[in-house]
């Protein structure tokens, strides 16, 4: 019923540094359908923010796309000129940056800052009155009093600033919003309010959202589909319900087993031993093998391909059949 809107196809991206190449994104593929929400979860440095930045082509200067495509509605974004890409940013894909709530310029009114973003990017040129009407509609949509658009950022609480950031991301009517750690600096109650708001807006406007977070519980709350990333690779991809019910990749399994929860039985959690690898010299074969309790000799030498584990639930692991059911490890 829904058609693919965004297709990331075998994307490979490296950062060139003095010490060598940092393998930030290694052969990542996924699709995002219209009206769908996808979560990318992983630890810091796993490449999730690099993917977000690649989708907008806002990568650092030393980033290098070595292969692969990012197709939006069939057009490869990586082949566009800078000017063509600039036209698409905000209009087709917009982003709620990590910590953006602290990036408001303190000396301008919040409404004026949104207006400026629209002046720069929004296509149908609007009159002043139309812009104003649009901003107040957006404010209502994100649960802010439209009168607040004439206030300065310091008059907003953290949660309100984040809502205004979301309003700004919506201002050019994008098809896709990328939300990079949208609630990380917020308190639990405000985080919950914002997540519910985002869910509602997504349903109302029928847009697609890519959530990026290190917090697997946040992803569980708001997404239809989830991709688990480890050290620059997508290791598991499937419907959120499937992945949480039956994680197939050992990393996803251990991540879920090591996430404390306020619900369910109080249990001993399984720690993930070791530390994430240095992406200057990633481990050979499967990048998770040095920390993996299910690793075999093959894992150290051969890179596992994405395999279908049934129902479109994909996993990149040689031994995914060995991974037990969740809860099998408890006590």
């Amino acid at each position: 019923m829904s058609r693919p809107l965004l297709e990331v196809d075998h994307l490979v991206m490296n950062y060139t540094t003095e010490k060598g190449d940092v393998s930030a994104i290694q052969d990542v593929s996924f699709t995002l359908n219209e009206g769908e929400s996808l979560g990318l979860v992983g630890e810091s440095g796993c490449g999730k923010t690099s993917i977000a930045m690649s989708l907008l082509r806002l990568v650092a200067e030393n980033a290098r796309f070595d292969s692969g495509e990012i197709r939006l509605d069939g057009t490869d974004l990586l082949s566009l000129t800078d000017e063509e890409m600039r036209q698409r940013r905000w209009n087709d894909i917009s982003m709620v940056f990590q910590g953006a709530m602290n990036a408001w310029n303190p000396v301008y009114k919040v409404g004026d800052q949104i207006r400026e973003a629209m002046d720069l990017h929004f296509h149908p040129r609007l009159s002043n009155a139309e812009v104003e009407a649009r901003i107040s509609k957006l404010f209502e949509l994100v649960g802010l009093n439209p009168a607040m658009m004439n206030r300065y950022p310091h008059e907003f609480s953290g949660g309100m600033r984040q809502r205004a950031i979301i309003a700004m991301a919506l201002s050019c009517d994008p098809k896709i919003i990328i939300a990079d750690e949208p609630t990380t600096a917020l308190d639990v109650i405000v985080q919950d309010q914002i997540l519910q708001e985002l869910k509602k807006i997504q349903a109302d406007l029928g847009m697609s959202i890519i959530y990026i977070s290190h917090d697997i519980a946040v992803i569980a709350e708001v997404t239809d589909k989830i991709g688990v990333m480890y050290a620059g690779k997508l290791v598991e991809l499937g419907s959120t319900r499937e992945v949480f019910a039956r994680p197939r990749h050992p990393y996803a399994f251990l991540l879920l087993s090591s996430t404390p929860s306020v619900t369910g039985p109080r249990r001993k959690l399984a720690p993930l031993e070791g530390e994430p690898p240095d992406l200057l010299n990633p481990p050979t074969g499967c990048r998770f093998h040095p920390r993996c309790p299910y690793a075999t000799d093959q894992c150290a030498t051969d890179e596992p391909p994405m395999e279908d584990a049934g129902d479109g639930h994909q996993v990149a692991c040689w031994n995914w059949k060995e991974v037990p059911e969740l809860g099998g490890l408890t006590k």
Binding site: I189, Q191, D192, Q193, D215, A220, R241, A245, T263
Partner: peptide
């Protein structure tokens, strides 16, 4: 109660 209900739960079926 409010705090508890706002805590995200790593279980989409919950």
């Amino acid at each position: 109660k409010a705090l508890l209900s706002a805590v995200p739960v790593p279980d989409p079926s919950f």
